[in-house]
């Protein structure tokens, strides 16, 4: 149907019709603008990541573990949440910690929370999704990380 004919139709009739798809370039431009509006948040996060990576080294994180499974699991969760960077670092560091005799519970919690929890990105998460969502999501992820770590390590003990 021609555009002019559509415009001459009664509003009720027009409402039932499927709107034509906008040009892809326009949609791409809108998406780019939307993403660009987050630029200060993203640049701020990356600046913060640079700061934490410089001030908190993997060696400092490894020193936090004391060889006690229960407290080490909590320490591992919190250290992983505070740390930042490529998950590869957490795998390599986790492997080292295991060789040093740190429990699998703690190492699993550390590797998991490295990816799923992030103290650094909390301000951005709150800004974008609201404080309540950020709080609930992170509390669930915190509980989930500890539970998954404990279940995984326990299952490994049973299987071996």
């Amino acid at each position: 149907m021609k555009k002019k004919e559509q415009q001459n139709m009664p509003a009720g009739q027009r409402a039932g019709m499927v709107e034509p798809r906008p040009p892809f370039l326009l949609v791409l431009k809108r998406s780019s603008r939307m993403f660009l509006s987050m630029a200060p948040l993203l640049v701020g996060i990356m600046g913060l990541v640079g700061l934490v990576q410089t001030l908190v080294t993997p060696e400092m994180l490894a020193l936090l573990f004391r060889g006690r499974p229960v407290t080490d699991t909590l320490v591992g969760t919190l250290a992983g949440a505070a740390a930042t960077g490529n998950p590869v670092v957490s795998y390599l560091l986790g492997g080292e910690l295991l060789q040093q005799g740190i429990s699998l519970y703690a190492v699993t919690a550390f590797v998991l929370s490295w990816v799923t929890l992030g103290v650094i990105q909390l301000p951005m998460e709150a800004e974008m999704f609201g404080f309540r969502f950020m709080l609930l999501r992170n509390l669930l992820a915190l509980g989930g990380t500890i539970l998954v770590a404990v279940l995984t390590a326990f299952t490994m003990q049973v299987l071996s």
Partner: peptide, 25 residues
């Protein structure tokens, strides 16, 4: 207008705080 105008930036205060942290360091 929404496709051509300047984007409404979010998180400017956060970025400012990070810049300040860099300044202190």
């Amino acid at each position: 207008r929404s496709a051509n105008g300047p984007p409404p930036f979010r998180g400017r205060l956060f970025l400012l705080l990070v810049v300040l942290a860099y300044g202190v360091l």
